[in-house]
Design a protein around this nucleic acid. Structure first.
Lengths: 198, 198, 198, 198
DNA sequence: CTATAAGCGAGACGGTACGTCCCGTCTTAGA
DNA sequence: TCTAAGACGGGACGTACCGTCTCGCTTATAG
């Protein structure tokens, strides 16, 4: 989301164009997958010139990512049930559900894939997608530690890696089911290592 | 019209060409990263025609993968220390070490990245790289269960996902340290959930 | 590593593609003028990839020029009537006729126009179009001098400039009739200065 | 020259902006050639908005032409020596001098080049640059005919074409010297055909 | 002595074409 | 017959300007 000086003369960025681009990107991803969402196709579908896209986004992955964020934002809320285990089970299930669904999972996988060749995109994914979710996850951990539900000496980052890493692993590396059963089993295997063990 | 008494078939340079291709692919990845190892660049560097590459491999990712396998094969052996925890610590550390090293990590990330757009490559990575290593890892789990070191009701696949997933997560999604400390902490957090806990 | 090749082999330039490109260029110029003969349009009309055009020609003007040469080559032959005055009248009329005709004149004007921004094209026009015609014109002059028809001290280049320059001037700079009358009048004004005047 | 809008209210056309645009155009042509004098570059260099340029000129060629006229106006005066031959020699030499000088020649060639794709510009060049000079040249011819110096049946337009055409030919088509020697030789070859020949 | 409306700078916009890169296939010459 | 070299059709890339269109500011004159 490129920030610009806000008090400037002349025409502002066209919100209509921005929305049209994002909508087109989203639709292309949904209908034909990430590979079809080329900059040219997005521009054509949005009724927008290519330079308008390049004016505001660095490359196609950035466009698709912003479109993806719009899709994903409302989808996977972090609950607060009072139990970290339930919170994580709930959220991990929702994430697994989103990952195994078209187009959400396809797009995420495509974006992370492209990010391997595009450091700027990698940074964007980390900063705009991953990090906000980790902040929420860390809050769950912090609350649970305060409650005595999780080990006081827990390393929140590593704990979160241990819970979410396997989901991304299955999404990206090892094609295998990403469902609630998997999440339950995962929690059953990982969570005991994280709890306060009297 | 020159007469042509072509009796026998041509010379068997194929193995030499194959080696040249793999060496060129490896060198390109090492020197300039995965992105530079295009088929054309590999062919040129190997002194080989493009069709020769396409005759033996499906696309550039397949070439790079084979070159990568040659690199990776000897690097990360599975130990058998008698303790599954030690086995995993040892192997996970080696994997983390390889992942955080150029060119091994770069190439693996690039391959997995490309695999998101290329199902054949995804299959190849799963079948030729991931699965052999999982087989070995499952043996560690199986032995440890028989020894009573790990829970009898363990789901080996999920356990392995829980241990290796976080590494791939850090490699691919979340740029963060991949060192022995991380492995130790990870094991400290995950392993207790896997052990036999009377 | 395979031994370095010391000779060339491989496929030759596709004559079919070359002809298709030139035909398409010619047709576009004829139908819609020089401005319509963009590289993209030529490639599309010829059923050829853009890179194939750029492999063999430096830019669109080079393509159009080659197409133009094919058009122009047979059109304006140099006669040898025994009289230089008649030779020039005949040839100048043919040139004026070609210049004032679509597409020949349009294309020539467009090419010379582009040549003002493109030194390579200017060189090509001079070397491949202008110079061959000047060689023929110089022969006419030389023969006429030997015959005693033209001044012995004539400067052939300047004489040719004086005869052909006005045609190009009218084509490029000053929109005005380019017909046989003009040629006759031009010769009537210029030729007396060139003849042997005892 | 653009016509003035009604005297209703508000600021009038900014003469400063107009001068800045012309100066910038001239400077760009001088420094980097005609090709560099894009509308955007002129606007930027003049510190002026693009619409200000398009409000007052039809396109970049019009701007450059006006700038060019300002350059050229004072440079090449028509003399009146009493001898048409001397008048023409003098003026043709000055024109040849200007044509072979940067930026005057560059800009003129560029303008005429662009005019091949832009009928409006062609018309402007003819009307605003060529025609005024031809009027002066016709006066020389007329005076000389009255004096009996030139043939009574002379076609002034063709005579002028015969004298000036070769200069433009060398400027635009045939890269070759444009100096006083050339002008002298040209006159020596062409002028005898124009004089009164008792 | 304002108010209004034109001219201004800035620059975003939809577009067209550019020239490049690499893909994966096809063709040819020579060993 | 097989291989190297590389030309081919194709698709997308990211860039340069084009000429048009708002914006919000400035300013001169009409009221």
């Amino acid at each position: 989301m490129p920030s610009r000086p806000s008090h400037r003369s002349g025409p502002q960025r066209s919100e209509a164009a921005r929305q049209a681009v994002l909508a087109a990107a989203r639709q292309l991803v949904e209908e034909s997958g990430y590979g079809a969402a080329t900059v040219e196709a997005i521009a054509a579908a949005a009724g927008v010139g290519k330079p308008t896209i390049y004016r505001w986004w660095a490359n196609r992955a950035s466009v698709v990512m912003e479109a993806y964020l719009a899709m994903a934002d409302a989808e996977v809320p972090f609950p607060d049930t009072g139990s970290a285990k339930e919170d994580f089970r709930c959220h991990l299930s929702a994430v697994a559900q989103a990952m195994s669904t078209h187009p959400t999972g396809t797009a995420l996988a495509g974006l992370v894939g492209d990010a391997q060749h595009d450091p700027a995109l990698a940074k964007a994914i980390a900063a705009e997608f991953i990090e906000p979710r980790r902040v929420a996850a860390r809050q769950i951990v912090t609350r649970a530690v305060q409650r005595g539900e999780l080990r006081a000496d827990i390393d929140a980052d590593v704990a979160i890696d241990a819970l979410y890493g396997p989901l991304y692993y299955r999404l990206l590396v090892r094609p295998s089911p990403l469902n609630a059963d998997f999440v339950d089993t995962l929690i059953a295997h990982v969570y005991p290592g994280l709890i306060n063990d009297p």
